[in-house]
Write a protein that binds this DNA or RNA. Structure first.
Lengths: 111, 111
DNA sequence: GTGTCGTTTAGCCATTCGATTAACTGATAG
DNA sequence: CTATCAGTTAATCGAATGGCTAAACGACAC
């Protein structure tokens, strides 16, 4: 199995974190503002430990920060890893579009 | 809303497909131009069946089209699902930035 | 025919994922 | 002290992932 040393942002972990509807839904909810664990759990028909697990995944991906506050745990978005995912997609898109450009050139030279 | 002929893009599957370094590397290679299975396998220290499996994952995510051609199988990128992933991230970013804007307003109103 | 090339399929194994219920912790309220 | 609230941890389960080797397949070359 592939060895991975610690990078500031691990794209494997970030994309894997995004690959679950509940986790994406949690992020969308958090984009609207901070929330507690049970607030995040409410819209979903899974157990609280399941949500807790999803939050752990998001936290490990660096997408989330959880700070105990009064009796609740306050969950906040962290933007950086998302930007890294974004960055990869953009880089990929640039490669891909470059290729399309070259193909177009080739076609235009041909007729 | 009008029905689209496009297949629904399953973000779970797309993000999961992106969550592996070999698969991302394959996509990057393909962005530079079509390739055969063994060409795609060459840079990686895993068996050919492993690569074949990764290609299946990419294909199921709709990111890849494989067409048997002469004796080799030609692998091509398909752009649509990547755009969907991109779209989700953008939507998320908009939510996130909106929230930042509101926070900024709130801070400016305060002191 | 036999051989070989490029690729897929078939088993197999270890690990991880996603979910559950039950039990636990830590802080607060009565 | 006891009860409750918010959340985590533990134990367990079935299913999926990711890798391997070995065998099979389909098209061509000899």
């Amino acid at each position: 199995m592939a060895k991975r040393h610690r990078l500031p942002v691990d794209l494997d972990v970030v994309f894997a974190a995004l690959a679950h509807p509940i986790r994406r839904s949690i992020l969308e909810r958090l984009a609207a503002g901070d929330a507690s664990v049970s607030e995040l759990a409410k819209p979903h028909r899974v157990s609280l430990p399941a949500i807790s697990g999803h939050l752990k995944v998001l936290e490990k991906a660096g997408l989330l920060k959880v700070t105990p506050e009064w009796r609740v745990h306050r969950c906040q978005i962290v933007a950086a890893p998302m930007s890294a995912a974004f960055g990869w997609l953009i880089r990929y898109r640039i490669l891909w579009e470059d290729r399309l450009d070259r193909l177009t050139e080739a076609v235009e030279e041909k007729p």
